[in-house]
Design a protein around this nucleic acid. Structure first.
Lengths: 229, 229
DNA sequence: GAGCTGAGACTGTTGAACAATCTGGTTGCC
DNA sequence: GGCAACCAGATTGTTCAACAGTCTCAGCTC
């Protein structure tokens, strides 16, 4: 039902998309080895095409490749998380700073993302909330009007989802984040740049702490007690 | 003497490096078609390996790939240039802002890059000056202490060099930029963040204007007068 | 029980093959 | 003579089968 064959028969870009989806959705948890013979058979493409897809995912930082040891879904280290949050602070705070110059449609799009996240919360679709919230932050960065920064941020956020995948996302526990998204969004729309930046900075600090705790807890359970592999 | 064969026989990562070097150094000017059969023979690798290298370069934005039309060295548009300079402003200005928190060795490294650029100027090695100056800006972004931002900036700068490659880099014409690099570097080291940011902003504005003019002039000469392909 | 050895599995890379598509020139028609 | 259809060569996208190099682990020896 989940791992159907010939799901992506055809273009290699589709294979890449399928694998990326499975990875960021947590279907393939961090550490999972991606063996090309098995995967190429499962997806109905040749080994060469699959290897091209894996290389793209490697360039995006979603998998690790070691010579003659193959490919595996990347396990985020604590250093990775702090690195990612430096990038988030840099881009998102710059975006808030540049928000007065942003074209109106982009601000509308940003507001729409917050509304979507709030909708997911009220519908108690907890598995969708995290993604919806990240979409808001993506649309925040979009205020900078740089396709390159957008692309970089998208990849970075995808990597961050690797950490989310190992977190126990226990329902209503996520709702407060969306409320803070709304607060930041409204401050930006109201032109209160300094306040928005302050709120965003606190948000990112708290978020980083949460993710770091989860990653550290996960690294302990997967290395110390059980010598798995 | 220049296009030797078996120059990169071996690993595909080496093939990628060789091609990237040739592209950013202007050896392969923008628009040059990269035909895989010819290139794979020239570099002494198989077509499959070469195609993997081309895919990586595509992910880095150095070449364009269109279905059934193959790969060609990317020609930077005016939109690309403004996009790149938005990214430069975002990252470099953030770096200046974060410079008080940067570890001392990174500040030393930054100063060393400026010194290297000045050395190239006094040696009148004009072909090296542009690269040396960009290395200073790379080391400036390094103050942010994020490997991901470093990598993104490296790729972005490599794309910018596509524009440099089509510019007539006529010698001493480049020296003033290095002097301004020195000014910015000293302001950063002196802890005068605001002044450094102002100087950097003016620098980037002027630089963007120069590159934009060159790109626009180039696009006119390659489309309007001569219907060259 | 520690260290060596060999078999099997997997990866990295190659070369050849084939279908789909693009390009440029030629042919035929008006 | 001009224009459209068309055909052939070239190039790309993708697949397949093969082989050498490397890693892993079980079994053997001491």
């Amino acid at each position: 039902m989940s791992t159907q064959n010939s799901a992506a028969a055809g273009r290699p870009v589709l294979v890449t998309d399928v694998l990326r989806e499975r990875i960021v959705e947590g279907d393939l948890p961090p550490g999972t080895p991606l063996r090309d013979v098995a995967l190429s058979a499962e997806l109905g493409v040749s080994r060469n095409t699959l290897r091209e897809a894996l290389r793209t995912l490697h360039d995006e930082g979603l998998v690790t490749q070691r010579l003659h040891k193959g490919t595996a879904v990347k396990t985020l280290s604590a250093e990775d998380v702090t690195d990612i949050y430096i990038a988030r602070r840099t881009l998102e705070l710059s975006a808030v700073d540049a928000s007065p110059l942003a074209p109106e449609p982009l601000l509308d799009a940003m507001e729409a993302k917050v509304a979507a996240a709030e909708l997911a919360v009220s519908a108690e679709a907890w598995d969708k909330v995290g993604t919806a919230s990240l979409r808001f932050h993506q649309s925040l960065v979009a205020l900078l009007c740089s396709a390159r920064l957008d692309g970089f941020f998208r990849v970075t956020i995808a990597q961050l989802r690797l950490a989310f995948a190992v977190m126990a996302d226990e329902g209503a526990f996520q709702a407060p984040w969306v409320a803070r998204d709304r607060e930041i969004c409204d401050l930006v729309r109201g032109g209160r740049r300094t306040d928005a930046a302050a709120a965003l900075r606190l948000y990112l600090d708290d978020s980083e702490r949460t993710v770091l705790d989860a990653v550290r807890a996960n690294s302990r359970t997967t290395t110390a007690p059980k010598g798995k592999r």
